[in-house]
Amino acid sequence: MRASVGIVLVSHSPLLGAGVHELAEQLGGGSVALAVAAGTEDGELGTSAELIEAAVRQVDGGAGVVVVPDLGSSVLTARLVLDELAREELVLVDAPFVEGAVAAVVTASTGARLAEVVRAAQEAWQARKL
């Protein structure tokens, strides 16, 4: 059995990151390497390149890593980290935070390859609620 794609959730808020992590982990059956880089090192609102890099390294099992940011500077900080790591199997996705995270984790839990996990997260923009 090959390693699944790892997922990193990047949020400004430790509470938001923890909540989305809890939801995604349960829906993915706990079979996907999933980490959160949320807030700053001292637990305040913000983003941290160090926390993002540590989360990427934590979930990187060799099948690739999808990084799902919430907004604004989390996108910029995650992009900076991934540019520094310079590996094409580390992908920052443009996806809604909750829906994209859930789609990525559920798809990764099926053993899907990196491109499929990225596509599932991106397609979450099309998910209608009503």
Rank of each mutant, 00 (worst) to 15 (best):
E88N: 12
E22Y: 13
L92H: 06
A86F: 12
P96G: 03
L82M: 10
G6M: 00
E116H: 15
V65N: 00
L34T: 01
L130S: 06
G43R: 08
A95T: 00
V8N: 06
Q126K: 15
L76N: 14
A38Y: 05
V10E: 09
S11G: 12
D83L: 13
S74E: 08
L34D: 01
E116N: 15
L71V: 09
D83V: 10
L15I: 11
A63K: 01
Q58R: 11
V91R: 03
G72Y: 12
V68G: 01
D94E: 10
A54C: 05
Q126R: 15
V10G: 09
S4N: 05
I52H: 06
G19F: 03
G19A: 04
L9R: 02
L82N: 11
L80T: 11
V36A: 09
E53D: 13
A54D: 10
A86N: 14
L34Q: 01
G19Y: 04
P14G: 13
A124C: 09
A124S: 13
L114T: 04
E44Y: 10
R57C: 05
D94A: 07
A108E: 04
S31D: 10
V36E: 03
E25G: 14
V98F: 02
V56S: 10
L27V: 03
F97S: 00
A35P: 02
S4M: 03
V93W: 03
A33N: 03
E25S: 14
K129M: 14
V56E: 06
G64M: 02
L90A: 02
L16W: 06
I52G: 09
V106A: 02
G72T: 10
G72A: 15
V5E: 01
L130E: 06
A108F: 08
L85F: 09
G29S: 10
E44G: 12
L15T: 10
A49I: 08
L90Q: 01
A127G: 08
A86E: 12
T47F: 13
T40N: 12
V117A: 15
A78H: 13
V5M: 01
V93M: 05
Q26I: 08
E53N: 11
V102E: 00
A104E: 00
V93R: 02
E44D: 11
H12C: 12
R128M: 04
S4T: 05
L45G: 11
H21K: 13
T40M: 11
A33D: 05
A33M: 02
V91P: 01
E25V: 05
A115C: 09
R79F: 06
M1W: 13
L45F: 14
R113M: 08
V10S: 12
A78V: 07
H12V: 08
S4R: 07
E25D: 15
R87C: 07
D42K: 11
L15V: 11
V106M: 04
V98T: 01
A3Q: 02
R119I: 06
T107K: 05
V81I: 05
V105F: 03
L82T: 07
M1R: 13
H21W: 09
A121S: 03
E116T: 14
D70A: 08
A38C: 09
V20D: 05
A35E: 04
A95Q: 02
V59E: 03
